[in-house]
């Protein structure tokens, strides 16, 4: 299973639509980094609207994706985190404070534009 990565101008857009297993999550991490490298994208939006569970493994993969992309010069914004998912993350003690988030895809793109222009 591979998660599609769309390119829009300088940005990469990903909408995660499946229940992520570990292998798919790791594959996605690799695919995204190589796509950033090839395209020279400056921003990435990962939309999690359809994701109804984030456990500590997936949280780690997402956190790592943000850090690695940042190292490669692309800012990542996570969008659409469901209220129930936000609550379980807090129960897990995972705060994701250093990860930029936005309500939806549109807000995410706005945030990217602001961050990248800074």
């Amino acid at each position: 299973m591979r998660i599609p990565i769309l390119k829009l101008h300088n940005y990469l857009l990903i909408s995660i639509q499946i229940d992520l297993d570990d292998q798919t999550a790791i594959q996605f991490q690799e695919d995204l980094l190589s796509k950033i490298h090839k395209s020279g994208a400056t921003g990435v939006v990962i939309d999690l609207t359809s994701v109804d569970i984030i456990d500590s493994f997936i949280a780690k993969v997402l956190g790592d994706v943000v850090t690695m992309s940042d190292l490669m010069g692309a800012k990542v914004v996570l969008t659409g985190i469901q209220p129930a998912v936000a609550m379980t993350l807090i129960d897990l003690g995972i705060h994701m404070q250093s990860v930029p988030t936005a309500l939806d895809l549109e807000q995410g793109l706005l945030k990217l534009r602001q961050e990248v222009e800074e």
């Binding site: 456990d55 129930a84 379980t88």
Partner: peptide, 12 residues
Amino acid sequence: VDQARIATAISE
């Protein structure tokens, strides 16, 4: 919310 909590606990 509790469904998500239970599913997350099982996943861990």
